[in-house]
Design a protein around this nucleic acid. Structure first.
Lengths: 149, 149
DNA sequence: TGCTAATCTGACGTTTGCGTAAAGATTGAG
DNA sequence: CTCAATCTTTACGCAAACGTCAGATTAGCA
């Protein structure tokens, strides 16, 4: 195991650049509990991240942008990620009881469904807005070609 | 002309209720130039609106919500409405020159295209997000039924 | 070991988008 | 004309989401 894709070899500046944001934002998200604060870390130590953290941050930013929710609401929405991370950890350190697995998976499923509902509603609203705009566009174009020719 | 759909018979409270917002918001939008400030009106006089104003406010709020843009950007985006209102006014008070009509219509078309581009991009981003979430949902469900089943 | 760049914590500053309160004016009904 | 409801302007308040600055600390490297 040398080419580690899960190695903790990124620092906050790297993560910020990769995700297209700033260190301050990452610390802020950690502060409000939106991102996990690198469990074992003495005060003053540098924060260390993995590429999985970069992806997670990306997802968070994507959801924030596309759904337009507050960071507070977003916190509850992305608990699905927590569940997945939790699952992987427990899986890694000895096998979890089957009931436990079911529990975690079911929770993740619930959160995913919540996200899906929001995403689908937004998509539909955007679709109807798009068709209304297209109709208006046609009307204007007709008036342009008919009259102004 | 009695059943007027274009009569200026609404006050700020009515507009707010109809559009699902507050008087304060309407005044604020007017203050920052996002909504036109009822042209001829002495300081202290009550603001008067038409149903067209209600619809315009609705559009503004819709775009703000669905596109997630700042009120500043939104201001530039909805100049199309200005153009349409301008056109109707000039049309109403004597006929505008054909060149003038073309000019106004062309401007409106440009703004509509701008809005459409933004709306379509967002819709596509939401579509891909939706399919990613659906894929993840299927994966989780499979693991639930296979193992814990 | 010493240097330099990056990071840490803490705290205050900024912008956006309104909410809210005060004091007086306007409207429309009766 | 009176009165209640609504509106007017002015101004301060506030939460969210970071930006920014300072001073100390840490990490990596020669």
């Amino acid at each position: 195991m040398s080419a580690a894709t899960t190695a903790a070899d990124l620092r906050i500046g790297d993560v910020a650049r990769l995700a297209g944001t700033t260190p301050r934002t990452i610390r802020y998200y950690e502060e409000i509990g939106l991102l996990p604060g690198g469990a074992g870390r003495a005060s003053g130590q540098h924060r260390l991240y993995t590429e999985a953290d970069v992806e997670r941050l990306g997802e968070v930013m994507r959801l924030k942008d596309l759904l337009g929710v507050s960071l507070d609401e977003l916190g509850r929405l992305v608990e699905a990620e927590e569940a997945r991370a939790l699952l992987r950890r427990e899986w890694h350190e000895g096998d979890p009881a089957p009931e436990r697995r079911r529990e975690i998976l079911a929770e993740a499923l619930g959160h995913i469904d919540e996200q899906l509902a929001l995403v689908r509603r937004r998509r539909e609203e955007l679709e109807s807005l798009a068709s209304e705009l297209e109709a208006r566009r046609r009307k204007v174009r007709r008036r342009l070609t008919e009259h102004g020719g």
